[in-house]
Amino acid sequence: MSHLSTKHLIGIKDLTKDDIELVLQTAKTFKEVINRPIKKVPTLRDTTVANLFFENSTRTRTSFELAAKRLSADTINFTYSSSSVKKGETLLDTVNNILAMKVDLVVMRHPSPGAHSFLSKNIKANIINAGDGTHEHPTQALLDAFSMQEKVGDLKGKNILIIGDIMFSRVARSDIFCLKKLGANVKLCGPPTLIPNYIEELGVTVEYDIQKALEWCDIANVLRIQLERQSIKLFPSLREYSLYYGVNKKRLDKIKRPIIIMHPGPINRGVELTSDVADSEHSIILEQVENGVAVRMACMYLLAGKS
């Protein structure tokens, strides 16, 4: 297998296991590239990448931009707040105008789930989803899987716990699809109001007691509480959340073996994760960020060859 089965990367749901493995394997070669003294290859020097971010982002946008630059692609950045969207232009018009300037690859983050799927039916360029509302964030799931594999090898049969705001988290959704396809056991943990009904249909189990859940897992992926997406209060206070579902050193010390701690960022220190855990030797949060560039290079490389 040296081809992706799809022309766009909209969700992990659309990828096959072979696709995921191809991306992860290609990312390994790019990780070697970004650790060289000259961190750049000329592969995509004829490609222009548009980063369209209709939602705030630091990590993902910088990561995509760096990934494109390290492949020698040209990049243009678009942010919602300073664009003509404010004047009433539609999404399709905005994108078509940018594509008219000969753009080959669109990386987009949008608050509406399905925006990418809609675009993919209307434009020719390859699309990479950098997050669409509460739907999916495929490159985050791929970099999570890549980082996990680096630590524990094959994910088949490994116990992976996702803690926190599952309801509003696109990362949780993409992670579940990705990890299940790679054969891992996935458990979710969080307050009942933040666990969607019927989530077990995706092949995961749910545990409401965080101590029991932590004892079960090899790797714990802690998610941010997305207060900005909650229209009604789903738990009494951040303090109470932290008391019942926060990952702290006391909880981890009760477990005899070390477990790997991950977080997709940005961290609310002291809420879902305390500083002594986030900065501990078992935390691979910054490695996730490094791997993000390699994984995004792999995605761009594999999609750009398909135009």
């Binding site: 081809h3 394997q25 070669t29 000329p42 592969t43 004829d46 060859g305």
Partner: peptide, 18 residues
């Protein structure tokens, strides 16, 4: 990643270890 037939060769090459 340095080849000049990235798009024209028809099939994508699998990257190997350096």
């Amino acid at each position: 990643f340095y080849r000049d037939d990235f798009r024209s060769s028809g099939k994508q090459l699998k990257a190997r270890e350096t």
